[in-house]
Every structure is written in C-alpha cells, then in structure tokens.
C-alpha cells in the first residue's frame, strides 16, 4: 500500500496547457501517472499530450471520472482553481502554485474544511508513490519503492533526502511535500496519521523548517499516536531572527519558531533528530 495517490488515481491537471503544466504533465505521463484530462478555460475541446482538455473541472470529473486534481494555475487565479476543484467533487487537490495571497488561502482553507475535501499545498512539490503515481514535480528518477514514508515542508530538501535514501538502497512508500506557506492544507499530523495506518510504511521521515509551530504540534502527536520510528530534520538553524527565509512561513519571531525549540520538542517525543539531511539516513540505518 501507500498513501494518498496510487494506481487508482485519476488525475486532472488544471493549467495543463501552460509551459510548466505541459513540462511536468509530460514527466508525470512518463512516470505512469494516469492523467485523464487537462483543464484550461477557453481551450475546451482541444487535446494536449493526447489527453482531452476541458473548460471546467466539473466536466473532467463527469466525463473522465477524475478523482484528484493538480493545480499549476498562476497565483492570482489559483485560489479560484482550488474552489473549483472542491466544488467539482474531486477527493484530493494538490496545488503547486506559490505566492497565493494568505487572505485567499484563509478563505480556501475554511471552505474546504467544511466540504471535507483534502488539499495538499499550496507552494508544494506535490507527492509521489514510487513505481505507481507521481502528482506534482518531485523528480521520478530519484525515488524507489520501499518502506519509508517521507513528509516535508520543503520541495528540494525532500529531493535531497529521498536522493540520499535511494542512493543508499532505502526505498520509500510515499513522499509528500506539504509546502511552507503559513496557511495550507494537509499538515504534518494528517500525513503522520496516514503513514501510521499504512502497512507498507515501516519508518517515517519528517522534515520541517523554522517558523510557526507545526513541528511542535507534530512532536506532541507523535508522542501519543505514532508507534513507527520517526527521524526528523529541521532546516534553518542558522537563520537570523525576523527575516523571512524564502517561504512565507519560515521566520523566527522572538523565541518562537526556532530550529532548536523544534528539535527539542521532537527529541522529547522520542524522535531521532538529524543535524543535516544526509545524517537522516545514518540515523535510520542506526
């Protein structure tokens, strides 16, 4: 098994005909992801990469049975795209787009919570179940199937660690990038819970970063609810306070959100904490 995406995923790509949408849809098809349709308003009736393009997500759901949506739409239209996917009845929405205004995401998050739809992102690399399905931009050539579940706030940091795992012969069940925006969908706890319930996953890697308190909350959750071994790394130990480090959510304010505080909380929950990404693999090998 795996979590969230697999062979049964029927994907619709919102913004498929844009340059990024096309580039990564091609990579996903190469990987074997079952893309059933694309959506670009005004281009309904066309085809791209031999897949039908619809004007609306609703049509893609009705005509092609899409159950998951992937969003590559530019930031100023992305919140609307998430609302559209949620209303169209897909079960799972993955939003890659970065720089969506927080005020828009507040409305989105409160809306989809009431609807009971799962969102991953925005500003995330998506997720991949090695050998089965890639939804987003995680490079397919660095993953391999296996027993380790990976959840991370950062895209390229995820690649770094997955690359190191694969390099040393350790495969992954599913790799999930939740993104580093202050308001997003699926969080660490949601993914930890899924990994705990997943038979294939034997160990979990959690990668966080400075800012907010998601990692502290994840630590508390791990202590009470996770029986599988967890190894963690927190990026940003050297970040100066008061400066946003790229991700809108990555900022140390006063004493809150520091890497040290997060590491301590994780250690107290019995999590092995690595000092740099490659050390994660050393800790797992024990």
């Amino acid at each position: 098994m795996s979590i969230l995406v697999n062979k049964d995923t029927r994907l619709v790509v919102q913004g498929m005909t844009g340059s990024q949408g096309m580039f990564h849809s091609e990579r996903m098809l190469e990987y074997g992801t079952n893309i059933v349709a694309g959506v670009t308003p005004g281009k309904g009736g066309a085809t791209a990469l031999e897949k039908p393009i619809y004007n609306t997500v609703r049509e893609a759901v009705e005509q092609e049975g899409a159950n998951t949506s992937l969003i590559y739409v530019p930031a100023r239209f992305a919140a609307d795209a998430i609302f559209e996917a949620a209303d169209a009845g897909v079960e799972f929405i993955v939003c890659i787009t970065e720089h969506i205004p927080v005020m828009d995401m507040l409305k989105v998050r409160n809306y989809i919570d009431k609807k009971g739809v799962r969102l991953l992102g925005p500003n995330c690399p998506g997720l991949i179940t090695p050998g089965e399905c890639k939804v987003g931009i995680i490079p397919g050539n660095i993953v391999t199937p296996g027993p380790i579940g990976v959840v991370s706030k950062s895209g390229t940091l995820t690649y770094e660690v997955v690359f190191a795992l694969t390099y040393r012969g350790m495969g992954q069940s599913t790799c999930v990038g939740i993104g580093g925006d202050p308001i997003n969908g699926t969080n660490f706890i949601d993914v930890l819970q899924l990994f705990e319930e997943d038979d294939q996953t034997e160990q979990i890697i959690l990668m966080g970063e400075i800012g907010g308190n998601d990692e502290e909350k994840a630590a508390a959750y791990i202590k009470d609810h996770i029986s599988k071994p967890v190894t963690a790394f927190i990026a940003g130990a050297t970040a100066p306070p008061g400066r946003t480090m790229g991700h809108a959510g990555a900022i140390v304010e006063g004493d809150s959100g520091t890497a040290e505080g997060k590491n301590e909380a994780l250690r107290a929950a019995g999590v092995k904490v690595a000092r740099h990404p490659e050390e994660i693999v050393d800790l797992i090998l024990g």
């Binding site: 950062s154 390229t156 940091l157 990668m207 990026a235 480090m245 740099h276 990404p277």
Partner: peptide
C-alpha cells in the same frame, strides 16, 4: 540554492562543518 528549505539547509550544513555562509 533552489528552494527555501534546501537553501536554509545548505547554510546550516556549511556552519555545521565549520564554515560561515
């Protein structure tokens, strides 16, 4: 570096190994 998390991590590892970003 590309990506905020990896950029922070690259700074962290330089410092950890005795350098200064």
């Amino acid at each position: 570096v590309n990506g905020a998390g990896l950029a922070m991590t690259s700074m962290d590892i330089i410092k950890l190994f005795g350098g200064e970003p």
